[in-house]
Nucleic acid binder design. Structure first.
Lengths: 163, 163
DNA sequence: TAAGATTGAGCCTTCAATCTTT
DNA sequence: AAAGATTGAAGGCTCAATCTTA
């Protein structure tokens, strides 16, 4: 603990009102709406092309990136922001489809190590063809590069408060 | 990949690359992540205070705004961006809880008119106490007014392309 | 025929309990 | 006891079929 960690909250600093301003509320509802519309669009594009849902893509991408050494379920969980049971069930479906394979984990008898299969790699690639096109349609077509960067920056502020 | 999947796109048909830039992809993933984190936070806040899920709030708010004349399910559907069956089931749960009431619709024998009950009004108010605080925590605390307005504007661009 | 709305069946998510290993 | 992970049961979402009225 150093001096700079201390927050000298004077009386005036204590927020009497928790009430969000109109601009704050509008920003929040715009996030909900933008997510709803764009997410539905992307999922529909995948479904239309007979591809698996978006959640599967994230798993396949992570596992393809790490290669043969694979990943533990709890690592994927942290990466994908899913609850433990959600991860467990999602991985179960992917394994049943033959897109990933679980091996007993060396050095820790409690867990498995998940590894992508050749079929899984192939499916991820097919999904990306559809997914990337959809991203271009919902974001690329509507924002220029500077706007896209601003949007990323503002979203970052929402989830990693820096005060 | 089979022969029927092949698209013989003439040269002139392809406008440009469908490939999203890095900034575009980053904007997209930031939207997914920001939504996931903030939405989970808000839902958790409601659950923590023994309140109904967020989806219920939107219905109650719409119905409170229109007052005694109520709303038809298909109107709520359009407002809330839900599928028809989703609306039907959501309204069913709200009615079962006693927060809304359905009346036979005058002038159109096919449908009902949904009206909020006094209990529903009370619950919406309780929910707002929790919900507004959560919005302030995820948005208000992290963005200044100008940033909030910029965020709304960029989200709008995603869902209503103006070209 | 189309519009408004509901519903049975199946899949996915969530909760809570459980199991194994650390 | 805690960490990693799974699972039965309950509830929510989705699909497709259905029903009634316009």
């Amino acid at each position: 603990m150093v001096a700079s960690d201390l927050k000298v909250n004077a009386i005036a600093c204590i927020p009497k009102t928790m009430k969000p301003t109109d601009a704050t509320i509008k920003a929040w509802t715009s996030l909900l709406r933008a997510h709803s519309v764009t997410f539905s669009f992307v999922e529909a594009a995948l479904k239309d092309q007979k591809q698996p849902p978006l959640a599967w893509y994230d798993v396949l991408l992570e596992l393809e990136r790490v290669g043969e050494k694979g990943m533990r379920p709890f690592e994927l969980q942290n990466e994908l922001l899913l609850p433990q049971y959600g991860t467990s069930r999602l991985l179960g479906r992917l394994e049943k489809a033959g897109y990933i394979k679980s091996h007993a984990c060396e050095g820790d008898g409690r867990g498995q190590t998940m590894v992508i299969t050749p079929l899984g790699r192939q499916v991820r690639k097919q999904m990306w063809a559809v997914y990337s096109k959809a991203i271009e349609q919902v974001v690329g077509r509507n924002l220029d590069q500077a706007e896209a960067k601003t949007l990323s920056m503002l979203h970052s502020k929402l989830i990693s408060p820096n005060e």
